[in-house]
């Protein structure tokens, strides 16, 4: 592994690996796009992981959930950008997609709750509850089952950027 780089703010530098951009109209035209994009990108970025096949399966599993969240956006215009970068054992997904202002507020609240200490309990309650998993629960599950950390960043226009760090190498055998 090469030297660790840090930017001026002290956060480690994530090296870009792959990016896919699509018109959101194109993306939401077929549900299967979530599966295609997550599978393709997982294979591309897993080649030099210690166990490429298992890493690819895990990454695709987590990334597909995020893409399914983006698929349900109510904003019909703009672009979807999926970017993956890496720092050591952690892969970072930056998913930018159009959303309405009220949706942005929802995501900000959902992500802030993911970090809460009762996240696991809330996730378990949702599994045993009657309602189908909401977008908030999907984000919670990433934290609970994949040890992901999540945050929301500013994006241009009517868009939101979800930043998800996945330390999947640590989940390997």
């Amino acid at each position: 592994m090469g030297p660790v780089h840090h930017d001026l703010a002290g956060e480690p530098t994530f090296e870009p690996m792959i990016q896919i951009d699509m018109e959101i109209r194109t993306f939401v035209s077929a549900w299967r796009h979530c599966d295609y994009v997550s599978t393709y990108m997982a294979r591309m970025i897993s080649q030099n992981r210690s166990d490429s096949v298992r890493h690819s399966n895990l990454f695709s599993s987590a990334f597909n959930e995020l893409l399914e969240v983006a698929f349900r956006t109510r904003h019909a215009d703009g672009a979807l950008a999926c970017r993956v970068s890496r720092h050591g054992a952690t892969d970072r997904i930056e998913l930018t997609f159009p959303c309405l202002p009220e949706e942005r507020q929802f995501y900000e609240e959902a992500v802030s709750q993911v970090a809460g200490f009762e996240a696991r309990e809330r996730y378990l309650n949702s599994v045993s509850g009657d309602l189908a998993p909401s977008r908030e629960i999907v984000l919670l599950e990433l934290a609970v089952d994949y040890n992901a950390t999540l945050r929301v960043e500013e994006a241009d226009g009517d868009a939101i950027k979800l930043v998800v760090d996945l330390p999947l190498e640590g989940l390997q055998h």
């Binding site: 599966d35 399966n57 695709s60 599993s61 597909n64 959930e65 399914e68 949702s126 599994v127 045993s128 189908a132 998993p133 629960i137 999907v138 599950e141």
Partner: peptide, 11 residues
């Protein structure tokens, strides 16, 4: 693979 929607339904 199984997404959360399917996992919840079977669970």
């Amino acid at each position: 693979q199984m997404n959360n929607a399917a996992f919840h339904a079977f669970s």
